[in-house]
Design a protein around this nucleic acid. Structure first.
Lengths: 102, 102
DNA sequence: CCTATCTGCAACCAATCGGTTGCTCTCACT
DNA sequence: AGTGAGAGCAACCGATTGGTTGCAGATAGG
């Protein structure tokens, strides 16, 4: 189980989620391109992409002088499994409680 | 589809996740009780609980002079559905790409 | 070769955040 | 009635964050 912290932290920012969704739905793009599409400066986008990269949500691919970023939605499975784990704990508690009441 | 922002923001903090997990696995508890179990002051816990409450992750129940907080894991379904939505967008893109290549 | 474009680095700024301390208020209990 | 435990409010603090501007380094293309 990898470290959840960078992942949740990365997803907490709406701009970052927007960038990530843009990459999943619209395919790879460079930082400059994303900056042109979203109402933020290129450097801001670059920082967000660095954060997403550290969280494993994004992949870098240097092509000539450009850097193409593409989404790695597989990283989201860690989120899903955390939710599942918490949900299971909840269910366990519920059934224990039910058992106690009977 | 409710507002994702408070939800993701609430889950971004590790202490908050710890509080939430504690409530799902260990059942309802008051702020003071949680403060005794975790290495944080009561007021810090209270702030976290307020955040969790705004995100819909937690329920308040005033019992006498105490306030019992209990987990509402159902709120996590919004997270899951967001993940699903993004995943679907990704799959759609992939299949379109595949189709284009053929 | 020269220029325009894309990236990276650094400094800086205001706002937010997680956390603390200190005080007041309320309410259960003896 | 008095007291002690629990909750709420407010001010404050240092660190982090999201964002900006400005500048320097690389590289594709005329």
């Amino acid at each position: 189980m990898s470290d959840l912290q960078p992942l949740f932290a990365a997803l907490a920012d709406p701009t970052r989620r927007a960038v990530f969704e843009r990459l999943t739905a619209g395919g790879p793009a460079s930082a400059s391109r994303l900056a042109a599409e979203l109402p933020v400066s290129r450097q801001a986008i670059a920082k967000h992409l660095a954060t997403l990269d550290e969280a494993g949500l994004v992949e870098r691919a240097t092509v000539g002088r450009e850097v193409q970023y593409s989404a790695r939605p597989a990283a989201l499975s860690d989120v899903t499994s955390w939710v599942d784990r918490v949900g299971t704990a909840w269910d366990t508690r519920l059934s224990r409680l039910k058992q106690t009441l009977e």
